[in-house]
Design a protein around this nucleic acid. Structure first.
Lengths: 345, 345
DNA sequence: CTGTTAGCGCGTTCAT
DNA sequence: ATGAACGCGCTAACAG
């Protein structure tokens, strides 16, 4: 079954290849009768267009490269899904590169040099494939300036950022402020917080939201309620134990990711402190498991899908050379479940 | 910054484009001195090869198309990761299509016609892009014969199958047999099973493993211990309640997915039955949450990564026209956690 | 052995 | 509606 091309059709339909091309693309008028004849032959021969030839001539591939730091990390698939929704809609395609960072360098994301070669290779390959732009999906929101040089090809970062390029993030400050507002609306006043590492931008931003809520709603500010974790389960456990030793315990804890919530739950379970009866908890990330543990965790959902979709919107407008106004910070949404009790009468 | 091509280099290095091509590919000997000069110019001009031109001539793209029914479903990312590992190693690339089935048709996977058009479009697009083969990743192990016609282009299915094409699955029967063996080794004799829908092949295969263990180890066979669920959380809950009403309760339950385990845990919690003290549980899938609930679930891990990798192995050998011997059924591995107690002295 | 010329792959598009 | 040049890199055939 040898490949059937445009000229096979031309021959069989007794027209030139140009004509075939015109009917195929509707680029120019073709006499209806000729058109029909060509169409019929196309059908008969089961013709499949060859996009690589087309791309060579048109200098457009309609392919955008997606570099995911690790597709197996929780935030990535949903972002890709958002990218896909856009791609589907506008007939673009996704060349996916997976850096497999988690398996290759573990949690050592800080040391950019450890994986710079992977990133560089990925970009080189993608450029050779003539992608029209690149979306880079991080697994941890952090500054990766200097990791990548696209030689002028448009790139948009999401779930991470650089000094000078466009990036799509979510609104961290609003998220923690909203979480606080929810807790306060439920009558909580003594609210502790377990943050992630403080060298992380999200941590600081979320802390800002926490602090802004404290001041705006004139809550008592107790420095002992501020605990710094490291995003890991164990640190959630440890920090919670510390909170339990306070003479005046908090009635609620805002915890910056669901993993640390699990640690907190273990600490509370061991101490015989019931959730949410004795202590309420709000988490972050809306990880899948937060709906399956007991009690189910009330948590902030991240707008991952939206981030993927927006990345594509921004990227395509940059490709087209349009100046764009866009929302770089889609908002998080609180998912109410069972880990918060109302203190109101 | 206009695109620099092979002929720009040729001109600047005072050689023919052929020579440049030869140094670029090592296709033929070039005098070291000339070679060096060319290389230097390539460096200076920051030349990036154009794979689409190359592909047009060579009739090879090194791209394989991956159609995922839904990248946000738990099994898919790890399979893609396996595909990527292979692709990375052999310098191939992945054109990813996401059917987004979950969002588009919900759980209505049975009705192939509901999404046939998406699949057909995906294949057409991929063929136009001249992919050298296709891997189709299902979200549920089932027969999807007739969904796709690749016009002779090699395709491998994984996490689903068809009448006549190659597919990579995992060994369901071994998995449930091993789970039973583990339970039996821990002194359990009265072992119940909550299966998924019985029209599903994995359900039947796993039931075979259960039954084979029962007979091989000469356990008492009690038909009342066999419960048929529907993979959903609620059915795990319901079936477990039924089991609790039995005059002689089982000491352990083998449950065919972790989601139903969660349902079971809720039923047991309500009934004041402790896991694993009063009843032991083994799940299936090793979902992320199984490590976070209390107690942590002992469950069968699926060889997803391996399935992705194997799919690529098989696909590439088919592409090369080699006859292949391969393991179509990588094995599952039991992950020991805290939901099984030993009954042994 | 080293280097060059020219045609090709497949579809698009301009000038006729 | 058509012929032919073109996009970019590969490679067969040929020359020195």
């Amino acid at each position: 079954m040898t490949r059937v091309g445009i000229k096979d059709i031309a021959k069989k339909a007794n027209v030139s290849t140009a004509t075939v091309s015109y009917v195929l693309n509707g680029t120019r008028n073709v006499r209806p009768k000729t058109k029909e004849r060509v169409l019929k032959v196309i059908e008969e021969l089961n013709y499949t267009p060859n996009d690589v030839a087309k791309s060579l001539k048109s200098q457009r591939t309609n392919i955008i490269g997606v570099i995911a730091e690790d597709v197996t990390v929780f935030n990535v698939p949903e972002i890709i899904d958002g990218i896909n929704e856009y791609a589907d809609r506008y007939d673009m395609h996704i060349l996916l590169t997976n850096l497999r960072l988690h398996k290759r360098v573990g949690h050592n994301y800080g040391n950019i040099d450890a994986y710079k070669k992977y990133a560089t290779n990925a970009v080189t390959d993608l450029l050779s494939k003539q992608v029209e732009g690149i979306i880079y999906i991080g697994v941890h929101p952090r500054d990766i300036t200097g990791l990548i040089d696209t030689r002028g090809k448009p790139i948009v970062y999401t779930y991470c950022y650089t000094d000078s390029d466009i990036s799509i993030q979510y609104n961290n400050e609003q998220a923690s402020f909203d979480a606080m507002k929810y807790l306060i609306a439920n009558g909580h006043q003594r609210i502790a917080i377990i943050s992630g590492l403080m060298d992380s931008l999200p941590s600081r931003l979320r802390f800002n939201g926490y602090y802004r809520a404290i001041t705006e709603f004139q809550l008592p500010f107790d420095p002992q309620f501020i605990k710094v974790g490291d995003w890991g389960l164990e640190s959630g456990y440890l920090m919670t134990k510390e909170l339990l030793q306070l003479p005046q315990r908090p009635t609620a804890i805002l915890i910056m990711n669901d993993i640390m919530v699990i640690g907190a739950m273990r600490a509370l379970y061991e101490a015989g402190v019931a959730i949410p009866k004795d202590i309420s908890i709000v988490g972050f990330d809306n990880r899948e498991f937060s709906d399956y543990v007991n009690p189910r965790i009330t948590t902030m959902d991240l707008p991952l899908h939206q981030m993927g979709y927006s990345s594509m919107e921004v990227l395509t407008s940059v490709i087209k050379g349009e100046a764009v106004e866009f929302d770089r910070s889609p908002t998080c949404t609180l998912i109410e479940r069972d880990s918060v009790a109302s203190l109101l009468p």
